[in-house]
């Protein structure tokens, strides 16, 4: 059974039709590359899955149960974690504070609960190590490189036992060496059984880690096939419209 199933998802913002009848599935231990030109509806689709807004029509099923999310926190409780394209970090806080944002660890008794700095720093440190990032828990996000910020945003998704991980352009703003790290990380997470949706513009990235590819054009799905059955040339054609459908 697929961990996530989207059926006939349609989303309109006023008069603009962002998505029209998009259906797709996602299995455990699978990376789906979601591709498309600017404005094709990739981010909208990912944000619907992450609970930023509900679809206008269509159903979302997780582990066989239909659900409706109105807030990202609800999606998170259902085991869906997302890394936004702009990363959604607080520059004025430390790496550890960002990792635990909204899920701070506390200790105490009765009505008194103090932030557990020690535990959060230790856990964040372990996560960064696992991600092979040199980020330190006490570092301020404002002073970090793109790759370090990315690590903080991804570390945040590793706090809970997520089953679905959504990555919106995770390699867009980082160096080549860091891209390799992020792609290795995606493979490791897939091997741990996570279902991953990778939104990306970068053809080489998608072809190196994805198992399947879904192409959107002007809000509609125009391809959904195994990566081994496709090629960068075909995908480029699908994205631009040179190839109508595959």
């Amino acid at each position: 059974m697929p961990v996530l199933e989207l059926a006939d998802i349609t989303k309109s913002f006023g008069a603009i039709l962002a998505l029209s009848n998009v259906s797709m599935t996602l299995e455990r231990g699978e990376v789906v590359g979601l591709m498309g030109d600017n404005g094709a509806g990739k981010s909208t689709l990912v944000k619907i899955i992450a609970g930023n807004f509900p679809p206008t029509q269509g159903t979302i099923t997780i582990d066989g149960r239909p659900i409706t999310f109105y807030h990202p926190v609800e999606a998170r409780r259902s085991g869906i974690e997302i890394v936004y394209q702009d990363l959604a970090l607080c520059d004025n806080l430390t790496a550890a504070a960002n990792v635990f944002l909204g899920r701070e660890l506390r200790f105490g008794f009765g009505p008194f609960h103090l932030l557990d700095y020690g535990a959060m720093h230790r856990r964040a440190s372990a996560l960064f190590k696992e991600l092979k990032s040199e980020t330190r828990p006490r570092d301020l996000v404002r002073r970090m490189s793109g790759g370090q910020r990315q690590a903080v945003a991804i570390a945040r998704t590793r706090l809970s036992d997520a089953t679905i991980l959504l990555l919106d352009e995770p390699t867009a703003a980082i160096s080549v060496r860091q891209v390799t790290e992020v792609l290795n990380l995606i493979r490791r997470l897939r091997n741990q059984g996570l279902a991953i949706v990778l939104v990306s513009h970068r053809m080489p990235d998608v072809f190196s880690v994805a198992d399947r590819i879904v192409v959107l054009r002007r809000g509609s799905k125009v391809a959904d096939k195994k990566i081994s059955d496709s090629s960068p040339e075909e995908v480029t054609g699908l994205i631009t419209g040179a190839i109508e459908r595959a």
């Binding site: 998170r76 936004y84 959604a88 004025n92 806080l93 944002l101 932030l115």
Partner: peptide, 25 residues
Amino acid sequence: FRWTQWGRHVFAIGGNEQAATLAGI
């Protein structure tokens, strides 16, 4: 400010209100 989750969230809102909202604050 220093020791409570509430205080942490006050700082988070000033840092990036959108991120704070997405984090469920």
